[in-house]
Simulated assay, not measured.
Amino acid sequence: MRLRHSRLYAGALSVSVDYVNDQHWSDELRLSETQDTLKLTHALNDLWRRRPARFARLVPLRVGVHLTQLIDLKMHTPDLFEEKTERTRGALFQAVDHLNKVLGKNTVYLGGAHGATKDAPMRIAFTRIPEPEIEEIDRSYERRLKKPAKQSPPAEPEAW
């Protein structure tokens, strides 16, 4: 959601894990530039499966997931073979982002995250201050999908 809000596309996803025994693992996967949550989730799953077996039983201390190779929306060229899927999913995620903005973060999420949406609450990182308009409910909608119409001042009664 933040990537789409910032009008950016990611060309790579990386994962790094620090373990309690001072061991570390990281890897990166290059992508065709995307904002698609499903593509990014599949990429994360692929990276996690590539993790060497020796790390499987270690206790993680810190996990970092980073989107890199960022480009501005204006610089994006749709993939010739994925343009229809990108357009369709773009509309889907625009609707999901809108619902989450109006009704609250994680009102709508991928089914695989069920039961885990509260496990990683928003944090203030050293490099980024969260934007309230995408991290919290937009109260101007008053929990409606459309902003309320502006009220016109009452008309003056006509003089007879």
Rank of each mutant, 00 (worst) to 15 (best):
R2E: 15
R2S: 12
L3N: 06
R4C: 11
R4Y: 07
R4A: 15
H5N: 11
H5E: 12
A12K: 04
A12W: 00
S16K: 06
S16A: 12
S16P: 01
V17W: 02
Y19V: 06
V20D: 10
D22Y: 07
D22W: 02
Q23Y: 03
H24Y: 15
S26I: 00
L31E: 06
E33V: 00
T34H: 01
T34M: 07
D36H: 10
L38A: 15
L38Y: 14
K39F: 10
L40K: 02
T41F: 13
T41I: 11
T41M: 15
T41R: 15
H42S: 14
H42W: 15
N45G: 05
N45C: 03
L47W: 01
L47R: 03
W48K: 07
R50H: 11
R50S: 13
A53W: 01
A53E: 12
A53M: 08
F55Y: 15
A56H: 09
L58E: 14
L58R: 09
L58C: 11
V59K: 13
V59N: 07
R62D: 10
R62N: 12
R62S: 10
V65S: 09
V65W: 08
V65M: 09
H66A: 14
T68I: 04
T68F: 02
Q69Y: 01
D72A: 15
D72L: 13
D72C: 10
K74C: 10
H76R: 14
H76V: 06
H76T: 04
T77P: 00
P78Q: 04
P78I: 01
D79R: 03
D79N: 09
D79T: 00
D79A: 08
L80I: 14
F81Q: 06
E82S: 13
E82L: 14
K84N: 13
E86Y: 06
E86N: 07
R87N: 12
R87A: 15
G90T: 00
A91N: 12
L92I: 05
L92K: 01
L92G: 02
L92P: 00
Q94L: 03
A95K: 11
A95W: 02
V96M: 09
D97E: 08
L99N: 06
N100C: 14
N100D: 14
K101G: 11
K101F: 00
L103N: 00
L103V: 00
K105L: 14
N106I: 08
N106T: 08
N106D: 15
T107V: 11
T107A: 13
T107Y: 05
L110D: 07
L110M: 12
G112E: 12
G115Y: 02
A116P: 04
T117E: 05
T117S: 05
K118R: 02
D119E: 12
A120Y: 09
P121E: 03
M122N: 14
R123E: 13
R123S: 07
F126H: 10
T127Q: 08
I129H: 10
P130L: 10
E131P: 04
E131K: 14
I134R: 01
E135T: 12
R139C: 12
S140Y: 00
S140V: 04
S140K: 11
R144L: 05
A149N: 07
K150S: 11
Q151D: 02
Q151K: 07
S152E: 06
S152I: 02
S152Q: 08
P153F: 04
P153C: 03
A155Y: 06
A155D: 12
E156A: 07
E156I: 06
P157F: 04
E158H: 05
E158V: 10
E158P: 02
A159E: 07
